[in-house]
Nucleic acid binder design. Structure first.
Lengths: 184, 184
DNA sequence: TGTACATCAGTGAACGCGCGTTCACTGATGTAC
DNA sequence: TGTACATCAGTGAACGCGCGTTCACTGATGTAC
């Protein structure tokens, strides 16, 4: 049956949102089109009324997650305390335990390397993230802000990947805590 | 037909070796049992003469890759130059472009978080790696060697994940170079 | 030492299953008159 | 304003495919006598 146009656009957005969450939680190949549609409250058929393919949805959900993530940087206070709070929030058990709403790079970094179609979108995301972090937060010097941002982000992403992979709560928290104390 | 016992053991080892390489290159779900067997020069049938399931092979290949990786730490010179060379080798374009022979954590970190069965094996690997790196290499002080090892490893893993995910050679090399210069 | 037989890793067809994707059909909505 | 019809997102069965796994069968090797 035909539905109001506004409802269709809202459903499209909901599919993208659910996909972004599920992909970060379980990886691109760990989530089926049917599961995403069920999560959105629909059957799997109309998926192809909204997207050309699963790969098209992956690209769109990545772009959407990227926008959300960049808004997070922009929303932090542009001073030393804001930077420390941002990094502490990133390296928190809460972020570790909620990959579906968290950092793209930590959740899908490995998967993206293997999925040629999404690497350009991810590259743009990383470039923009580095630029925004470098200019938004205070660093030791203007000259080294990009270098320092890269070092900080590498440590943040690596710590989150390791903290999520281990099966030992104490070790996981130790990784987050020690990495955090080296960055703030 | 029946084969000499030595040949059987050698085939088992070759399956584990090929699996370790392919999993690191394409992820656990990106490689089929059939592909692994074909790469080893066999048909897919006898796989179950060697392993109870794909998951059992994953566990064994992870343990094997872990042993190889720990041997790499042990083989480095136990001084400042050896440590610098080890980190530089890790953060090299050569390592980035050869995930199949490289670091488990950087290649499969994200996948391992989602595969409950392999997390204990991975946890042991990470614990042993931290201990070996902390005791084998010189650090600023005995008191902080574990803390410094965690910070160094987080940065190494994060930089490699990001360097592999981006589609831009200059940015990829910049990430490796700037992270390396912050660690040595 | 020579012969008869049990062993078991190999082969390759087959299984059920879930995947991404397609399609004939449905029926409330929006539009033309 | 009321009626007739075209639209198109929805439904759900169906498609081919590749997956992990099973299994009846093969035949060179190792062993018992």
């Amino acid at each position: 049956m035909r539905y109001p146009a506004a409802e269709t656009a809202e459903k499209h957005a909901r599919i993208v949102e659910q996909a972004g969450r599920l992909f970060r939680e379980r990886g691109f190949s760990g989530v089926s089109v049917g599961e995403i549609m069920k999560e959105t409250g629909l059957t799997h058929g109309p998926f192809y009324n909204h997207f050309a393919s699963k790969e098209a949805l992956i690209a769109e959900s990545l772009a959407q997650a990227s926008r959300m993530s960049l808004a997070g940087v922009a929303g932090a206070s542009p001073n030393a305390a804001g930077k420390a709070a941002y990094i502490a929030s990133y390296l928190s058990p809460a972020h570790r335990d909620a990959p579906g709403a968290g950092c793209l790079m930590a959740a899908l970094g490995c998967d993206i390397s293997r999925e040629p179609g999404v690497r350009p979108t991810f590259t743009t995301h990383l470039k923009t993230t580095l630029e925004r972090m470098a200019s938004h937060f205070p660093w030791s010097s203007k000259r080294h802000e990009r270098r320092d941002t890269i070092r900080t982000l590498s440590a943040m992403v690596g710590a989150m990947v390791l903290a999520r992979a281990v099966d030992d709560e104490a070790l996981s928290e130790e990784i987050l805590r020690e990495t955090l104390s080296g960055l703030v």
